[in-house]
């Protein structure tokens, strides 16, 4: 309980741009690291023959996995654009524009969200049972 209380006090009570960006970057980073494990297992099935690989890939055509793929694209997009923001802050004298840079990162994520919606929403709807 004290861990949750401390986490809430330290990381959720401050709603500043820098804090929110820091927290989201960690959350998306951990999510991507977790995703890599089943991803590697799936890719490894290609070594076990074409039938096995097709069977494995068929699992990912269900609406649940299509939706998960959509979320994955957004997660990668945020982690990438915010990562570029962090690199810009580290390498150039842009600290005074950190809020603008975060806004830009969110804008790019929104662009990815809209573009990905065109691709994924029909797939999710069409693959529904």
């Amino acid at each position: 309980m004290s861990f949750i209380r401390n986490f809430q006090r330290l990381f959720l009570s401050q709603k500043s741009v820098g804090n929110v960006s820091w927290l989201l970057h960690r959350v998306t980073g951990v999510a991507l690291a977790i995703y890599l494990l089943p991803h590697f297992i799936s890719i490894h099935s290609s070594q076990l023959g074409q039938q096995m690989f097709d069977q494995e890939l068929n699992v990912y055509t269900t609406p649940f996995f299509k939706f998960a793929e959509f979320i994955l694209v957004l997660t990668v997009a945020f982690h990438m654009f915010n990562g570029l923001r962090i690199i810009a802050l580290d390498c150039f004298n842009l600290v005074g524009h950190q809020k603008l840079l975060f806004g830009l990162a969110l804008f790019c994520c929104t662009a990815v969200l809209i573009s990905a919606s065109f691709l994924f929403v029909p797939q999710i709807l069409l693959s529904s049972p």
Partner: peptide, 26 residues
């Protein structure tokens, strides 16, 4: 420093310690 900018947000003198820390990293 993880560039959370909390110090910059609260400094009553309007100083950005994060700016100094980033320059120091370079």
């Amino acid at each position: 420093c993880h560039t959370q900018f909390n110090c910059t947000d609260v400094c009553p003198m309007g100083i950005s310690p994060t700016r100094a820390i980033q320059k120091l990293k370079r």
